[in-house]
Each structure stands twice: as C-alpha cells, then as structure tokens.
C-alpha cells in the first residue's frame, strides 16, 4: 500500500532569526512561551545552532518585530541556555510570500515541491 496526499496550510508567518548568541541546553518551550507572551502571538522555534535561533512568528509583520528588536533580544537573553554576545542581533525578519500553489509540480517524496519549482 502506498498513499500520499498533500494539504496547504494557509497561515501567515514571518521568519525571524537572531544571531550572535551562545546556546547550550536550550528548552525551546521557554523561548516560544516568552516571545509568544511578549509579541502576543504564536511563535515556533524551527532551527537552532550553537549561535543562532530561527523562528516562525505567526500573524505579525516584520515592521512590528523591527520596532521591538531590543526588547526581543533582551527577552531571549533571559532564557536559560542562551547567552548574548556583543554581536547579538536580528539577522532575518521576512514575511513569507504567497506561491501559486495551484501549479506546484508533483512531489516525489525525496525533495520538496519548491525545490523542483525554482
């Protein structure tokens, strides 16, 4: 048996990256809860390295995030497992762009549709 279907999630989000951090033993729930409360929206951590956190922030524009940059970084600094360096800054703050999802090519399961599409 082999069956594959696809669905589209129509959610608006902004991809937010903060660099210049030292990270070890991070509980991603701590950062999601802290920033969700600060920004009053849903935040999801999608990638972490030793010096960088990448997040999806739903239903908020990059402009609003820009206005609050200092407070966001200060909030992140208070989370256990995160240490700021003097290079700490928001390095990416971009809203996702709509794609023509009616014309996504078939997806073979090994790569994503967008990868073939580009």
């Amino acid at each position: 048996m082999e069956n594959s279907e696809r669905v589209i999630a129509f959610a608006d989000k902004t991809v937010l990256s903060i660099s210049g951090l030292k990270i070890k033993g991070l509980n991603t729930q701590d950062i999601e809860d802290t920033l969700s409360e600060k920004l009053n929206t849903v935040v999801r951590v999608i990638g972490v390295t030793g010096d960088r956190i990448e997040m999806d922030v739903y239903g908020i524009t990059p402009e609003n995030i820009d206005k609050d940059e200092d407070n966001i970084i200060k909030a992140v600094a208070c989370i256990e497992g995160v240490t700021l360096t003097e290079l700490a800054e928001i390095t990416e703050n971009k809203q996702i762009k709509d794609a023509d999802i009616e014309h996504l090519p078939d997806f073979d399961g090994i790569v994503c549709g967008k990868e073939k599409w580009l």
Binding site: N3, E5, A9, F10, I96, A99, C112, K114
Partner: peptide
C-alpha cells in the same frame, strides 16, 4: 514496506 503520508505545505509553497 507499506506507508501513507500527508505532506503539509505552507502557502509559500514550502514543505512544512
């Protein structure tokens, strides 16, 4: 051996 899957894409065309 046997499988079924759901691929959830964002409206930006990325595989979420």
């Amino acid at each position: 051996d046997n499988k079924c899957s759901y691929k959830i894409f964002g409206k930006n065309g990325h595989l979420w």
